[in-house]
Amino acid sequence: MWRDLGLVVLPLLAVLAVLPAVYDNGALLLNFVVFLVLAQGLNLTYGFSGYLPFGYVGFFGAGAYGFAMSVTLAGAPPLLGVLAGGGASLLVGLLLTPLLRLQGAYFGLASLAAAEALLHLIGNPNLQPVTGGPYGVKLQAGYAPLLTYALALAILALTMLLVAWLRHARFGLRLLAARDDALAAAMAGIDIVRGRLVIWLASALAAGLIGAVFAWRTATFFPDAVFDLNFSIFAIVFTLFGGAGTLAGPVFGVLLLYGLYNAIGLSAPQYFQLAYGVLIMLLALFFPEGLAGIARRIADG
């Protein structure tokens, strides 16, 4: 645990904390943190309970809209709005808990359908007075680049602490046992339903909080922008690439792949989609445990 904190969490946070002083593209830095949180959030649910939610972006969008609606409709101060965003994603997570009864592919697709349904609902023209409908949201919450970045770092810290704790606590080990064999886990006295629920809600909360911060920073967005399936896809690719269930894996995934994504430029998204598509296939075929699996193979000789 302390080794995880000292080798991964603290150095990462320290570098991210000083970067704004030497690098002036604050929006890009925030995006890095957003994807770090999303990758670790997805890592919570996929890495520890085996549920792969293709619709993970639904929590991000719910957080963004929870923030937007609490600020515009209820006049909440932005900091409270961020909590409202987290609350909104928790609520969506609770509503979707019945999905946890489903097996792998069924769960993945049902969660994707849920995220799409949420997008259609929020973007519905009939709901324009409430959500802004298809015309999106224009926020006057105040542009606060440093505060939003600091908040994002705090959310990242909490998410990574949770992952680090799970990797060493008995609760995390029990989740992994249930992932290996649910029936045997039940016989070992493990309350699988409760464990999965806890991890699912934690994962939802992480995405919701960071979605709220993203909304605050972005201020103006359409529903499609915060429910963009690419958020899910990126989070999945980064996590799988690095190695699900590890702490450093998703971090490497984000830094390498999202770094590459930005280094080459954004002019032609289909090139990245192609690269990611091929990468996903290669991972599934040859390296199902990602970089972490390769590292383990080398370490084992």
Binding site: R170, L173, R174, A177, D180, A184, A185
Partner: peptide
């Protein structure tokens, strides 16, 4: 058994 866990962890859980 839980195949990805170590033998000791199998009992610890």
């Amino acid at each position: 058994p839980f195949p990805t866990l170590t033998v000791r962890q199998n009992l610890e859980v």
